[in-house]
Amino acid sequence: MYEKLVEQLGSYSKRYRSGETLGRAIQYTEDLLDEASAAIETLETLLQNYESAIDTKKRLAAKIEQLQSELEQVKRERNEAISCLRYYGECYGCLYAVDNNPCLCRECNLDESSCESCLWSEDPCETCLYGENWEWKGTKGKK
């Protein structure tokens, strides 16, 4: 559509400059000018929409960058909190702890005093000294 319109306007311009139209109208000039006007309005609308889309894209990119920065900060804070739990919280937060107490075998019935001679080899707490077997239990609802 635009190519034909540009071609027609160029032809009209050449005829006007050459004096060919002097004193008389070119056939369909009004229609051509109406089409040109409508095309310009359409192009202006498209340009405004394009500029708006670019602005939106820039705002979204800035927001994504901000959220990525915040996510990295939260990850650092989470890792530091987990580290503190591991080294200072004894069994608190450990995957193997039962109600934040050391994991005990079934035979001892959760009685730590009778578990001193426990032979339950699957007990990760059995050999844990100062959190070396400590593993974060994660968040509630984590699958």
Rank of each mutant, 00 (worst) to 15 (best):
A61K: 05
C118M: 09
S83M: 10
Q66P: 06
K58C: 04
I64H: 09
A97C: 09
C125R: 01
C128E: 09
Q68F: 04
N100G: 12
G138R: 03
R15H: 03
W136T: 01
S117Y: 07
E65S: 15
L60W: 02
S113E: 14
R15K: 14
R59E: 10
S117I: 09
G138H: 03
I54H: 00
S11V: 00
K137A: 12
G10R: 04
L5Y: 00
A62V: 03
L129W: 10
C105V: 13
Q73C: 14
R59M: 04
D31R: 10
G131V: 10
S114L: 15
Y28H: 13
E132G: 06
C108N: 11
K14A: 07
C115V: 04
Y2G: 02
Y92Q: 12
N133V: 07
G89R: 02
G93F: 03
E122Y: 10
G93T: 06
G23H: 07
S11P: 00
V6T: 01
K140Q: 11
C94A: 12
G23D: 08
W120H: 15
I82A: 12
L71H: 10
D111S: 11
K143M: 04
L95N: 14
E126D: 07
R59T: 06
P124L: 14
N79I: 05
D34T: 09
Q66V: 08
T139Q: 14
E20V: 05
K137M: 12
E77P: 13
A81D: 02
C91N: 04
E107Q: 15
S117P: 02
Y96M: 11
K143N: 08
D34F: 03
L32V: 01
K75T: 13
E65M: 12
E70K: 11
D111I: 14
T45A: 01
E116D: 11
L46I: 01
G19H: 02
Y28R: 11
K142F: 04
Q8P: 00
C128Y: 01
T127W: 05
Y88D: 13
E135P: 03
E126I: 07
E70S: 15
K142I: 06
S52K: 03
A62F: 03
I40V: 08
T42G: 01
C118Y: 07
I26D: 09
N133K: 13
C115T: 09
E41Y: 00
